[in-house]
Design a protein around this nucleic acid. Structure first.
Length: 102
DNA sequence: ACTTTGACTTGAA
DNA sequence: TTTCAAGCCAAAG
C-alpha cells in the first residue's frame, strides 16, 4: 500500500513535461494522496544521486525552490531549470507560465 | 516509546 | 504583504 503510493508519486513527477513546473502539493494530489505534500518532499530527499526523475521541476506552492538560497541544492536545482528555460537568469521562476497541469 | 524535524499547503489574521 | 496555526506523517534523534 505504501509502496503503491510511492510509485504513484514517482509517476506523477515523471508526468511533468519538460519546461514546466509543479508543486509538491499538486504532485501529491495527482498521485491520489491529497494533503501529503511533505511526503512528496521526503521521497525526493531520498532519491539516489543518479535518479532519472525530474525532481528539479518540483517547487513549492509559491513557485519558489524549497531550499535555502545559500545552499548547493538550491543552485543545483536552479541550474537544471535554467537549462530547460524554466527560469530566468535572475533566478526567478516562471511559475505562472510553467506551472503544470495548466 | 516520545519528541522533533522537514525539498509542504492553506486559510485566517 | 507577511505571519501563524493546523494538518500532514515517515524518519531521525
Amino acid at each position: 500500500m505504501k509502496d503503491e503510493a510511492r510509485q504513484q508519486i514517482y509517476a506523477a513527477i515523471h508526468s511533468v513535461p519538460m519546461g514546466r513546473l509543479c508543486s509538491y502539493g499538486k504532485i501529491a494530489e495527482l498521485a491520489g494522496q491529497p494533503g501529503k505534500a511533505r511526503y512528496v518532499g521526503r521521497l525526493l530527499s531520498q532519491l539516489p544521486k543518479d535518479t532519472r526523475l525530474p525532481w528539479f521541476r518540483i517547487v513549492n506552492s509559491q513557485g519558489k525552490i524549497s531550499f535555502p538560497h545559500d545552499s548547493n541544492s538550491y543552485q543545483r536545482q536552479l541550474s537544471h531549470l535554467i537549462e530547460e528555460s524554466s527560469a530566468e537568469e535572475s533566478g526567478r521562476l516562471h511559475w505562472r507560465q510553467c506551472r503544470w497541469p495548466e
